[in-house]
Computed example of a mutant assay.
Amino acid sequence: MVRHPRPHPSPHDREHRRRRRRRRVPAVHEEVAFRDLWDEPFLASAAESGWWRDYLLATDGREGHPVRVGTLAEPPDEWLGAIAHGCGAALAPASNARCHDRPAVTHRLVSGVGPSRGARARAPADDRDPVVQDSVRRSQENGGAEGSNTTG
């Protein structure tokens, strides 16, 4: 599995889900428009992570408004700890609410920013593998790019 966008996607990547992004914040916040977050500090990965940092900060959805970085964080536990301590906010796929749950952090839907997208990446030779073909088909049937996983 890979997270899109990525710098040089393969023509063999098959997007199989699209989920609205949620904002990771201290548990006191409510649902919010992305534009309302532009002046808040965000958690960021190191500048060397390039396109991944831009994706995490949703720079493509800021209409040129500069990003305010609150702190740098890398692994999920570090991010969640920084959020819980008020060091900054972060955007994450809605599905992460189930995987990365903390009592002091809540996940709220964010409007005005594109969804997080996931795709199945595979080598061209895998196109002939019936197991891979079946897996791709099932992914698309059970929540493809515009399927049931688009909102949550």
Results as ranks from 00 to 15, higher is better:
R20V: 11
V28E: 15
W51N: 02
E40W: 08
R35H: 04
A89P: 00
R23M: 15
F42E: 12
P26L: 04
L43K: 04
E48G: 15
P75S: 05
A84C: 08
A73D: 10
A47R: 15
V32I: 15
E48M: 12
P76E: 06
R22K: 09
A73K: 09
R19S: 14
G70L: 06
L37S: 09
A89V: 12
A47F: 12
W51L: 12
A58F: 00
T59D: 01
A73R: 14
P41Y: 02
R22C: 11
A84M: 08
R20Q: 13
V69K: 03
E63W: 04
D36M: 05
A44I: 10
A46W: 08
R23W: 14
L37M: 09
R18P: 00
R17T: 12
R20E: 14
V32M: 12
G88W: 00
P41V: 06
R21E: 13
R62T: 01
R20A: 15
L57W: 04
G61E: 14
P76Q: 04
T71R: 11
A27Y: 05
G50T: 03
H29S: 10
W38Y: 07
E31C: 03
A84G: 13
A46S: 15
L37T: 12
R19G: 07
L80K: 03
A47D: 15
G86K: 00
L57R: 01
F42W: 13
D39Q: 08
W79P: 01
P41T: 04
E31H: 13
R17F: 10
V67H: 01
R20G: 12
I83Q: 03
D54R: 07
P76G: 05
L72D: 09
R23T: 10
V28A: 14
E63Q: 06
A46C: 05
A46P: 10
D39T: 09
E31W: 09
E40Q: 13
L37Y: 02
A47T: 12
E74L: 10
